[in-house]
C-alpha cells in the first residue's frame, strides 16, 4: 500500500519524464482531458489533467468531470509511475481498469505504454 505522499512523488517523477518526451507529447496533441484515478486499496481519489500536450501536476481528490476514470491499487500506480511496471500487463489482467469513451481509453492505454517504454 502506498501513501498519498509516495504516490504524488512518484507521479511527479513520471510527469517530468513524460513531458520531456517528444513522442509522448505528440500523442497528446488535441487531447485535453480530465483523468480521475481511484485507488482500490486506499480508496483515495486523484485528478490529472492533460492540457496543451502537457500533463498537469497530480491533485489529491477528484476535481471536475472526468473523461477517463482509472482504477487500480496504490502500489501498482506507484510502480507504474516509477517506471517499474508495464501498465499494459496490469490492464490486460484486469487489475488496472480504464473507463471512458473507446477512443479516450485507447489513447490513455497507448500513452501509458509509451511512457513506460520510452522514458
Amino acid at each position: 500500500m502506498a501513501s498519498t505522499e509516495e504516490l504524488v512523488e512518484a507521479y511527479a517523477e513520471w510527469r517530468t519524464r513524460s513531458n520531456a518526451n517528444p513522442r509522448l507529447t505528440k500523442m497528446l496533441k488535441g487531447w485535453d482531458r480530465v483523468i480521475h484515478f481511484t485507488t482500490t486499496d486506499t480508496a483515495q481519489g486523484y485528478t490529472m489533467r492533460v492540457e496543451g500536450q502537457q500533463l498537469s501536476e497530480l491533485a489529491v481528490g477528484h476535481e471536475g468531470q472526468p473523461d477517463v476514470v482509472v482504477t487500480g491499487s496504490s502500489e501498482d500506480f506507484c510502480d507504474m509511475y516509477w517506471g517499474d511496471l508495464n501498465p499494459s500487463e496490469k490492464y490486460m489482467s484486469g487489475e488496472i481498469t480504464l473507463a471512458g469513451s473507446q477512443q479516450d481509453v485507447m489513447r490513455i492505454d497507448a500513452i501509458s505504454m509509451v511512457a513506460f517504454l520510452d522514458t
Binding site: 513522442r23 505528440k26 500523442m27 508495464n86 501498465p87 499494459s88 500487463e89 490486460m92 485507447m106 489513447r107 497507448a110 505504454m113 509509451v114 517504454l117 520510452d118
Partner: peptide
C-alpha cells in the same frame, strides 16, 4: 515480454504503439 507487444527493443515498441494509435 509482458503486455500487448514485445519490448526487447523498448524504443521500437514505443514507436509501434504510437503508430498503432
Amino acid at each position: 515480454y509482458v503486455g500487448l507487444i514485445p519490448t526487447s527493443d523498448p524504443h521500437g515498441a514505443a514507436d509501434g504503439i504510437a503508430a498503432m494509435l
